[in-house]
Design a binder for these strands. Structure first.
Lengths: 247, 247
DNA sequence: ATGATTTAATCAAACGATTGATTAAATTTG
DNA sequence: CAAATTTAATCAATCGTTTGATTAAATCAT
């Protein structure tokens, strides 16, 4: 075997015995977690290709070979990061939707649906802009969604699409439109797009706003702005639709 | 000199004689242009570090050393790309503002300002989402604004900030607020954020909308959605402010 | 239980391949 | 010819990966 032909198969996790040693401060699970945390930081800050395995191992306090051992290679570590993100991102989405599951499924009236949307978006923005654990993996996600990739596929299917669909249900209920109509889907994208942009373009926003960075105060102002737009857009679609229905 | 200590000074552009040979199919200017075009594509598609100089030269039909000769190195090529983007991005912004300079400076009334904003955003969205030359450098820009960088600095100062300020003037005129107030600046960011997200998240949007890609038709629907939000938001801020002023 | 054996995990060291950069000669251009 | 430009070849450095040795814990045999 001279050159490539490698891409060796996954190292098969295969925990020994039980998982009793998983949470030991120096156990193998701690090494895995440290490698993923370091890789998330570095992949997000500098990009996948720009990050060397030595740097990851160094920051994680692990040996270089441990990457190949635990994840099969650098690419495997990237996918492990993606799954870690899926878990955390799902948790954030779940937190944003907290205590709303029942109301959503109860076919809420328009005003109720709008209030739920407002509460959910407000919580999402405040979390996504300032939470340290969020700031850790958001840059990683932003780099992964730039183009088609297995990571994007996973995150879209497991987190983004389900979340978007739930927001569409609410938007539809708030404006009296079918939740899967083209207009609703686009409106929800325009809504979350505002929130996402304030995260993506933070370097630009903070310059223009003369902010040092995002704290709870700035996140609050942004949430107010987006939620005001949300209210205005829903009111506008309600007015337009009723005008169409009974001219 | 053992390790680095390099970062050699710029190779001094030094155009030969006149620019009479610039447009010759094999002239030196053609090599420069081909290298920048190839680098823009590859930097955007895969990132700066993930792109090798050999690949750039290969796609441009030039030799590897020509990068060092014309731009002083890979980093110089990146900055040349940034300046090329500044030119094209400035042209797009100028086109979006076309024929509005006079009206803007004429202190337009609220309805006129709102109409101008709508026209400008509509043109910007339709151009940014489908124009082939735009699609060429937008991914490059998105990668550069992820973190602080000289490229971001240039683009922000030369294009983004001036454009944002002009939009803020219009928004202020449309809603009767000071053009540099915090609320106006944030509202304009929320507005352009929608447009930017539809470009950044095209992989996600097209999946959810079951579109193959963006054509003039899809860009039109997106522009309609964003412009409707723009109208609704301005109307809402007008109503809120007048209610505050005379209770 | 206790000694023998296997397994999981980590380490330092080194691998071949590729990177950006550099050189000097060859070629083109005016 | 002389200057500008392109070419092929080579450089040291770094890349991701692999190797063989080592340690400690788990499993087995008796």
């Amino acid at each position: 075997m001279t050159s490539a032909a490698s891409a060796r198969e996954a190292p098969k996790k295969t925990l020994p015995g039980t998982q009793s040693q998983s949470d030991k401060p120096n156990g193998p699970e701690a090494t895995r977690a440290a490698l993923i945390a370091a890789a998330l930081d570095l992949f997000g800050a500098r990009g996948f290709e720009a990050t060397s395995t030595r740097e990851i191992a160094g920051r994680a306090g692990a040996n270089i070979a441990s990457i190949a051992y635990h994840f099969g290679g650098k690419e495997g570590l990237r996918q492990a990061c993606a799954e870690a993100v899926r878990t955390q991102l799902g948790a954030i989405a779940a937190a944003a939707f907290a205590d709303t599951k029942a109301e959503i499924e109860a076919a809420p009236d328009p005003e109720m649906a709008a209030s739920l949307l407002e509460a959910i978006m407000g919580r999402f923005i405040r979390t996504a802009l300032v939470s340290p654990q969020t700031q850790r993996f958001v840059p990683f996600v932003l780099r992964e969604i730039s183009g088609p990739s297995p990571v994007l596929e996973l995150l879209y299917r497991e987190v983004m699409e389900p979340t978007h669909k739930r927001l569409c249900m609410l938007w539809g209920a708030a404006t009296g439109q079918p939740g899967e109509s083209e207009n609703v889907r686009l409106s929800v994208f325009a809504l979350v797009g505002q929130a996402i942009y304030f995260r993506i373009g933070s370097e630009i926003v903070t310059r223009r706003m003369q902010w040092k960075n995002y704290t709870a105060v700035e996140a609050d102002r942004i949430a107010q702005t987006v939620c005001a737009n949300l209210r205005a857009s829903i009111a506008n679609q309600n007015a337009t639709l009723t005008r169409k229905e009974k001219p």
